[in-house]
């Protein structure tokens, strides 16, 4: 019977292997593997890291990128950057309220019907930096900064990819002609063969990205005294974006552990029952 189950497992494994999607032509560099605190079945978000990541997001990324699926209250949700057990309803979390109040959002005055500006509340969504896509493109040399809400799930490699991209900028290799307003990044998907004057068999990995290198040493000042190196900032903001994309990840893994224990016990009991029921029957 064990043999049969190993066959089932092998078949399932093979099916999974065949499902692995193809890599792009022009193959970007494989993202660097980061040992995230949330990796593995028991991994958790590091709250201090999420707070630092939020700071990088707010002071750097949010100048151009929206994260329109997030509300301020999410920051105070369980496993979130500003979760406080004293405030199970994150709308009441004073830290979250204070963060929200730093923003002005447009609203309709119920007396006059005029559009007015008011301070955001914890129930409001993160305001977007541009009123529409055209404004965003106009301010960014024609490129559209993607919404960051689910970015960590919308890219192969997830947080590893974001970290690698942010730290991966370097001079374009000699022989590569690129638009001076654009930037070479070996981790960004693309096809550089038309811009490459060198050996056609050795087209450089990666692509050309509109975003200039957004992070540098001491781009932000961390409140917890952590040294704000480029590497640290990139790690923190990538972790923050992973949380933003999958805020229920820790809850999911914790529940999974209980479910698996339950299923293992149930399988054991069912197997014992099966042996008992069949004990006098040949088969």
């Amino acid at each position: 019977m064990l043999r049969k189950f190993s066959i089932i497992a092998a078949v399932a494994g093979l099916l999974v292997a065949t499902a692995a999607p193809a890599l792009a032509a022009g193959h970007p560099e494989e993202p660097k593997k980061v040992d995230w605190s949330f990796n593995g079945p028991f991994g958790k978000f590091d709250q201090a890291q999420l707070q630092r990541g939020y700071k990088v997001y707010r002071e750097v990324c949010s100048a151009c990128h929206a994260a329109s699926l997030l509300s301020f209250r999410n920051l105070g949700d369980k496993n979130g950057p500003f979760y406080d057990a004293k405030y199970p309803n994150s709308n009441n979390n004073p830290y979250v309220k204070a963060i929200a109040a730093e923003y002005q959002v447009s609203s309709i005055d119920e007396e006059t019907g005029d559009t007015v500006q008011r301070p955001a509340t914890s129930a409001d969504r993160f305001p977007s930096p541009f009123p529409n896509e055209y404004a965003a493109r106009a301010s960014n040399g024609g490129a559209l900064p993607p919404d960051l809400s689910v970015l960590a799930k919308a890219r192969e490699g997830g947080p590893d990819y974001i970290y690698s991209l942010l730290t991966g900028y370097h001079e374009a290799p000699a022989g590569l002609t690129i638009d001076p307003t654009k930037h070479y990044n070996p981790y960004f998907p693309g096809d550089l063969s038309s811009a490459w004057s060198g050996d056609p068999k050795h087209v450089p990995h990666g692509g050309v990205i509109g975003m200039p290198p957004p992070l540098a040493d001491d781009r932000v000042t961390y409140d917890d005294g952590t040294k704000a190196t480029l590497d640290q900032e990139a790690k923190d903001v990538s972790a923050f974006l992973m949380w933003a994309a999958e805020p229920k990840m820790i809850e999911r893994k914790e529940m999974g552990f209980s479910v698996l224990i339950y299923l293992l016990l149930m399988s054991g009991l069912l197997y014992a029952s099966y042996r008992t029921v069949w004990r006098n029957e040949s088969h």
């Binding site: 999911r252 893994k253 999974g256 479910v259 698996l260 299923l263 293992l264 399988s267």
Partner: peptide, 10 residues
């Protein structure tokens, strides 16, 4: 269901 749960949760 164990296989199913591994995919869903992890």
């Amino acid at each position: 269901l164990i296989l199913f749960a591994i995919f869903v949760f992890y």
